[in-house]
């Protein structure tokens, strides 16, 4: 009798030998994508490092104009969302469908709060005339000839936090998709790869913020009283 090929499942597509092999391939693929993201953000961190080393005094004043308490609290919110995300992955490992749904929704909620606070902070910049390129741009405590360097700081600030927020918005979109799929009962203990790799993405975005927060809000704050 001819061998019957086992029916293809979500956890074991025909091109893989074992479920473990398929899972490893997904994880590795996601990590390779994240490596490209590290290099992508890395370019911006390099820009930041070069200009901070060129204009340390102006950058210290500009950096201190950000509200570090709001920044720290928002970091906490993001860390909390990472925790709920990893709990969603854990629920996936255990095949607890209800817990998957609850933790995905919580992650979405915390991600939303983070973005809301970020929007509030950006709005503050508009009200304080700290928008680079604005005709009325003026940073208090900086000489008129150095205002351009202050604009440079805020250009980097908006580019980096903006790019980070864009990643969060994409993450929110992915979470919404997962929530719809989880509601339909698509995930189980043998197949939760989408939750797993989304977790990797979400934590990666968290790690970027872990570095953005001290670099943009904290360094050289002590220089400005």
């Amino acid at each position: 009798m001819a061998d019957h090929a086992p029916a293809e499942t979500l956890a074991l597509r025909v091109q893989f030998d074992t479920e473990a092999q398929q899972k490893d391939a997904s994880t590795l693929g996601m990590w390779l994508f994240l490596i490209t993201e590290i290099m992508f953000f890395g370019g911006m961190f390099t820009v930041y490092t070069v200009y901070r080393s060129w204009y340390p005094d102006v950058f210290a004043i500009a950096s201190s104009s950000l509200n570090e308490i709001i920044g720290a609290l928002n970091t906490g919110v993001l860390l909390l969302s990472s925790f709920t995300m990893v709990m969603a992955v854990r629920a996936g490992q255990l095949g607890q469908r209800k817990a998957i749904l609850i933790f995905l929704i919580l992650t979405l909620l915390f991600g939303g709060i983070f973005l809301g606070v970020k929007g509030y902070e950006w709005n503050q910049k508009f009200e304080e005339h700290h928008i680079p390129g604005q005709a009325a741009f003026h940073l208090e405590g900086v000489a008129p000839s150095d205002q351009g360097h202050a604009q440079l700081f805020f250009s980097i600030y908006f580019a980096m936090t903006g790019l980070h927020a864009l990643h969060m918005v994409i993450g929110v979109g992915i979470l919404l998709t997962l929530i719809v799929q989880a509601r339909k009962g698509r995930f189980s203990a043998s197949y939760y790869t989408p939750i797993d790799v989304t977790g990797l993405y979400w934590h990666f975005v968290d790690v970027i913020w872990i570095f953005l927060f001290p670099l943009l809000y904290l360094i050289d704050r002590h220089l400005v009283k």
């Binding site: 990472s82 872990i210 050289d220 002590h222």
Partner: peptide
Amino acid sequence: NTVVALSIASVKMLLVALFFM
């Protein structure tokens, strides 16, 4: 100040990468 800030950030990164990721 820079060293301490980046060291703490690196430790946080390691915690997230090793455990959460």
